[in-house]
Design a protein around this nucleic acid. Sequence first.
DNA 1: TGCCAGGCCGGGT
DNA 2: ACCCGGCATGGC
Length: 218
Amino acid sequence: MEKKDLKAIFDKLFKAFGPQYWWPANTPFEVIIGTILTQNTNWGNVEKAINNLRARGCLSAHKLHQMPAKEIAPLIRPSGYFNIKAKRLKNFINFLFNHHGGSLKKMFNQDIDSLRRELLSVNGIGRETADSIILYAAELPIFVVDAYTKRAFSRHKFFAKDSDYDNVQKFFMENLSKDVKIFNEFHALLVRLGKDFCLKNKPKCEVCPIKPFLKVDF
DNA sequence: TGCCAGGCCGGGT
DNA sequence: ACCCGGCATGGC
C-alpha cells in the first residue's frame, strides 16, 4: 500500500459535507445497540428498531439483561435478521455483566487492544462492530473500516478491493494522526459520501463520481 | 420488481 | 486459508 496524504482527502470531504455529528445516538449504550443492529442493514430500519426499544423502556443494559432474546426479537424486527440480532445483543449484555458487572465505564477502562480482543470474543461482534464501539462509544482512537471505505479507496487504487480488514485499517491509522475526532469524522464522512453518491456494490460503479474528493495526491 | 443496506458466523473444501 | 449460504426488513 502506497503512502498517500489521507489528511488532505479528509479535509476535502469535511469542507464539502461539514461535520456529521456521529454516532447518531444519545448514550454510549445506545451506540452499541446501533452498531449491532446496523450490521448489513439500512440505518433507517435501525432507527425504527431502536425507537421500539425506547418506547418499551428497553434501552438499558439492566432491562435487556432481564429480557430473553425471544422478547427482544419482535421489538427489533424492522432492523432485519431480528432473531440472530436479538441473540447478539444478549451475547454482548451477558458479556458485559459477566466480565464488568454491567458497567460500560469499567469495560472501557482498559487499553484499546485488550478492549478489542474482548469485544471480538463476543459472538456476533466482528471487527467493524468492535471498532465502531471503541471509537463511537468508548471514544478511543481506532479507525473503522466499512464497505464504503473499501469500495471508494480500492476503486481509486489505494489498495486491492479484497484487502484484509486489518491491513486497510492499518493503512489509515499509519497515515493519519491518532486523533479520535479525525477518526470519528472521517468514517462518518465516507459513509455520507457513499450514500450521497450511491456508491453501490455494483461492478458498473467502477467509475464513481467521487474523484474530486480523492484526487488530491494523484 | 429486484436489488441493496454502516456484517458476521459456521460449515465446507 | 479461502469460499459460500444463511440471516430478513423496508426503501427506492
